[in-house]
Write a protein that binds this DNA or RNA. Structure first.
Lengths: 136, 136
DNA sequence: CCAATTCGGACTGATATTATCCGATTGGAA
DNA sequence: TTCCAATCGGATAATATCAGTCCGAATTGG
């Protein structure tokens, strides 16, 4: 019920990126120094975010990352899913292989879909733009 | 962003307990067999739930556990908090000691309160009674 | 007073997460 | 055209948390 440090860092870094002019070159090193996230960890995170389609990556000298969409089009749910995988309270998600030992007689599973949807909705309503604002 | 197996088990066990007549004696062993949760783990969980005030415990022969309140008065948020501690997306909760390295310059922290409140509200709206129903 | 049954806390092993290092790729400059 | 510098990307160890198990303490009933 708590997101990992990786996801936490990713949110901080993307919020920092959103405060830069759109289209500006953003290297992992510069963002790491700006946010305080360890450099090597930042590299790994940016790569994963790029693989998820939230960032566009460019290699070589003068390369770097750029936000793939506007800050309004990126939600907190998108960021978390990019780092941690699908948002679900339990492992027994519909459509996934459930290795839960209680599988057969679990009377709670049918209700989890509603819960997952509610939580995901709450996170979907938070945009990166609102997170990058100066004050609450 | 996914609750631990412990919390998952706790929900299943309490839902099973809610299907029994109110006030009936429920030993950890009987609930473990009923739900499929390993016995020793079930003992640990029941103890923690009792410490949180969700169950009343009685020792000695013929002892066991009883729901402290009605199933309507126990929310999913209560159960999760009893097992995992306070519900919060990040470690930097207001009032808690934040050992976050980004502490000083973190521009996202002011917004997390809103997110935490939204998620917690979603979980607070799910009662144990609704989870113990047979069908969704 | 004894014994059976139960809860409660402490310990060990396994899993996932976090951080780090080194190699592959690319673009610019001489 | 060749070299070099800067950057991304994946593979590798250390760490923290979680899951599970065991044994001791307390209490009630006979």
């Amino acid at each position: 019920m708590r997101l990992t440090s990786f996801a936490d860092y990713a949110v901080v870094m993307l919020a920092a990126a959103a405060r830069h002019p759109a289209g500006a070159r953003l290297s992992a090193a510069s963002l790491a120094e700006e946010t305080g996230v360890p450099l090597a960890t930042a590299q790994k995170l940016m790569g994963r975010l790029a693989a998820a389609g939230l960032l566009s990556s460019a290699r070589g000298t003068g390369g770097g990352f750029v936000l793939a969409r506007g800050a309004d089009g990126i939600s907190l749910a998108d960021i978390i899913e990019a780092i941690e995988g699908p948002i679900a309270m339990t492992s027994c998600v519909e459509g996934a292989a459930n290795d839960c030992a209680l599988e057969g007689s679990c009377a709670v599973r049918p209700h989890m879909g509603v819960v997952n949807h509610a939580v995901r909705g709450a996170l979907q309503n938070v945009s990166l733009a609102s997170l990058s604002e100066a004050r609450a």
